[in-house]
Design a binder for these strands. Structure first.
Lengths: 336, 336
DNA sequence: GTTTCGAGTCGAATCGATTCGAAGACGTCC
DNA sequence: GGACGTCTTCGAATCGATTCGACTCGAAAC
């Protein structure tokens, strides 16, 4: 019955009596509301946006910044209401995401838990005409971005350290390429044209201040505590005169790893070593407030959600660049 | 064209030439494969299962055990392929989940990030005939469960502590009810009939060993580091002769909070204080291996995923109870 | 030469809600 | 009484893939 549709959607004019009759029949037949699939087919909207997660879920969700972004996103989308469909993309099998993506009805896709590098999903989604959003990577032009000026942010943190008087300063980066392995950053991987990639841009900013020869290592697994600890140990477990007096890292979680590594070697933070992070996340278990660039992840996620909504409402929002704020904590001080 | 369907699905017999012709026409018209919505409507399957998340996403995702379960679940579902649709259910507005759920096409729903208490979503989903799964709560009979014997597990941890010689032992529980607030556990909230609720069952097991008067406090916010730290401070910041020599907690994250609180008060773990956790998760930033009941979250998630798949294949799997394993770490020792 | 068989193709019905336009009921005004 | 309007209701078409059954045609069997 077509009138039933009017009754349930509450749209068309329906006489009181007819409405009651329809509702009675509905409960009689155990009808629990319109079938979402049929409704979606008609409207061409599924009410779900995809969230692409690179690597194992547990790894991606270990990054509190990514969670904060997702949290803000959920906050905005809940109101629509639109669900978030998690799509795992195990590392090393990037092509396999296509058959996984193809049968899914998505109104938009957000890349918020993805690393650097090209993603085959972009091509597929572009062909299907599904709007794409990201927080920096992948940097494809077809993707609406909510980004920050990574290089300028990198410069700002480095300047803070420089102004405190530090001269022997090292850098701990997230992987510059998807294929990067833990250890010193090879020059070939630092491509100035890719300054929009967070790991590359932040490193470039650091080198803008401390010169192209300032030591830099990268973790092999993104923004991780263990990666930070290993990198920290490598940089700090050397004779004192070679040891850096400050370490600039690309994420708060990495910074936490470096701080713990320093304390394990008997160094005090910030007296013997200054450490900076990036992101501005909350690490309640760390007995320091990290000096960091606050990216306001939740706010970023909310903005992302707003752009998605606008796009689904028909307008075509442009990429935006958000400001970041240096937040000085208890992990930086003048050199000893 | 009906033949096109055969070509794309690769099911029916199609002549080579026709197949090529269809593919040519498809790429001509920019056809990127069958419309998932229409396909879903026909099959009555959406290819998505719902994951209900209670409270803000960032809070739920702060629990590494929940993440581990989700990770195992994703691992199994990726292969089908089936996506996981995150559905937020902000605390205090539990009814508002219905209009959010109603327009979503879901093949099944997993409650894995939910607290104790009744959930209005259960009634709605049951009416729609959507299969439900959970890891203990809600305990509705219509939900297929993958649970553990909470009370027996609680007994096992407590016995370990008792056998080490501890007599003054306190307990830190997760909230026993959705409305519980941080502080001492009121007797009215401990209902023996609810032993399947993790927080209740574990506390009952603890009291089976240490008696009904053993002190117990609960956090106000589930399994959280801050909750553990606050509870730890409350229990430990007292004259030495009243201070417990061991604290049994209901999660590793809470245990970590208690340990940090103890160290902040100048107590050494395990020399001055033994602490046990629950779950068996990996906390790389903690310089201890917590003595814990290993629930093998990832394995649990994988099993959950397998049950979901079976259910979607037509069989009707029964609830299962999994074994747990006491894993002794570096946080328990005889009393001083 | 006729029948039988099977591979390949296509038309039509189906999934269930939505929407457009037509038709019916009823009232008012000339 | 007839023309015209408004308020409701309903039939039919639509969204796009899938599937069942019917149909065609050529080859093999008798």
């Amino acid at each position: 019955m077509s009138t039933a549709s009017l009754v349930f959607s509450g749209k068309g004019p329906v006489a009181e009596a007819t409405g009651d009759r329809v509702r009675a029949a509905a409960s009689e037949l155990g009808f629990t509301g319109p079938n979402p699939l049929a409704s979606s087919l008609r409207h061409g909207r599924s009410g779900a946006i995809g969230v692409l997660v690179e690597g194992r879920l547990r790894m991606a969700f270990r990054d509190p910044f990514a969670i904060a972004v997702l949290d803000g996103l959920a906050e905005v989308l809940e109101a629509v209401p639109t669900g978030m469909l998690l799509i795992g993309q195990p590392a090393g099998t990037s092509e396999s995401v296509i058959p996984q993506l193809a049968p899914l009805a998505l109104d938009a896709v957000v890349f918020s838990l993805c690393g650097p590098g090209d993603n085959p999903a972009v091509e597929h989604l572009a062909a299907r005409g599904i709007p794409m959003f990201s927080t920096g990577v992948p940097g494809d032009r077809r993707i609406t971005q909510v980004r920050i000026d990574e290089r300028a942010a990198g410069v700002a943190v480095a300047e803070h350290i420089r102004e405190l008087g530090h001269r022997r300063v090292a850098h701990v980066a997230m992987p510059l390429l998807p294929t990067s392995t833990a250890g010193p950053v090879p020059d070939a991987e630092v491509r100035p044209g890719e300054a929009n990639v967070p790991s590359v841009g932040r490193l470039l900013g650091f080198r803008d201040v401390f010169g192209p020869d300032a030591p830099a290592v990268q973790t092999g697994d993104g923004s991780s505590f263990e990666g930070g600890r290993i990198a920290g140990r490598a940089l700090l477990d050397v004779p004192e005169q070679e040891r850096p007096t400050a370490i600039v890292t690309q994420s708060d979680v990495i910074a936490a790893g470096v701080i713990v590594a320093a304390e394990e070697l008997g160094l005090r933070v910030p007296d013997d070593l200054s450490v900076t992070g990036f992101d501005g996340v909350d690490l309640p278990w760390l007995p320091h407030r990290i000096t960091t660039m606050d990216q306001q992840g939740r706010e970023k996620g909310r903005l992302l959600g707003t752009l998605v909504r606008r796009r689904l409402d028909g307008t075509r929002p442009r990429s935006v660049t958000q400001p970041v704020l240096l937040r000085v904590g208890t992990t930086t001080a003048p050199p000893p």
